[in-house]
């Protein structure tokens, strides 16, 4: 895996180290719940893998639309990781629970180590197909994580968590559509 992505995984883990059970704040709904903090932590790990996957693109395909897709995922998800880390710091989450389970846990849609290794070895059209299928599944996993968050009592009462969860849902759905077009062999193009 690339140097950059290892760094990101490390930052993700560092964020976990400041995260976990939220300090109770008089029961105010808007201050963020345990479920919110868990969602943010898990999504950091989830995003980190998308960035790691995208870093494989330049050396494995020459397709310009694939490179642009990778660039967009890279920029989008790095910014969002920074935002989630900030949220965890600002919401004063403490460290206890999550650290050990994060390193071993696989969030919905994430590739296994074996799948990542397979992707790493693939080239050209085979890589493109594996990447797109993997990333569609990965994004759909994010949609599942959003749905799981919203299904919990007391979750997403904090406005930023609600908005972020909604944005992930909207953005990643739209990106899934674009990836489907690429998978169907269509070049990214304007359609009237």
């Amino acid at each position: 895996m690339g140097r950059l992505s290892s760094h990101l995984v490390r930052s993700a883990l560092a964020a976990c180290a400041v995260a976990s059970a939220l300090r109770a704040q008089g029961g105010a709904a808007q201050r963020g719940s345990q479920a919110d903090a868990t969602f943010m932590r898990d999504m950091i790990a989830h995003h980190a893998q998308a960035i790691e996957m995208s870093a494989l693109i330049p050396a494995r395909t020459t397709r310009e639309d694939m490179r642009l897709l990778g660039e967009r995922i890279d920029v989008s998800q790095k910014d969002e990781i920074a935002m989630m880390q900030r949220w965890l710091r600002e919401h004063d989450a403490d460290t206890a629970v999550a650290h050990h389970h994060m390193e071993s846990m696989i969030m919905p849609g994430m590739l296994t180590a074996a799948q990542l290794a397979q992707l790493d070895k693939a080239r050209g059209a085979a890589f493109e197909r594996l990447f797109l299928e993997g990333m569609i599944r990965h994004h759909e996993g994010a949609l599942t994580m959003v749905a799981q968050l919203l299904a919990q009592r007391g979750a997403a009462q904090e406005s930023q968590v609600f908005q972020f969860a909604s944005d992930i849902d909207a953005d990643q759905r739209a990106e899934i559509a674009r990836m489907r077009r690429l998978l169907d062999g269509k070049r990214a193009a304007r359609h009237h």
């Binding site: 299928e133 569609i136 599944r137 759909e140 949609l143 998978l183």
Partner: peptide
């Protein structure tokens, strides 16, 4: 944007839905 599974394990999520 028609749905439909794309590859093993992917769902049939429709997209422009809003």
């Amino acid at each position: 944007w028609k749905g439909g599974a794309h590859g093993e394990g992917t769902q049939a999520t429709g997209v422009t839905n809003q």
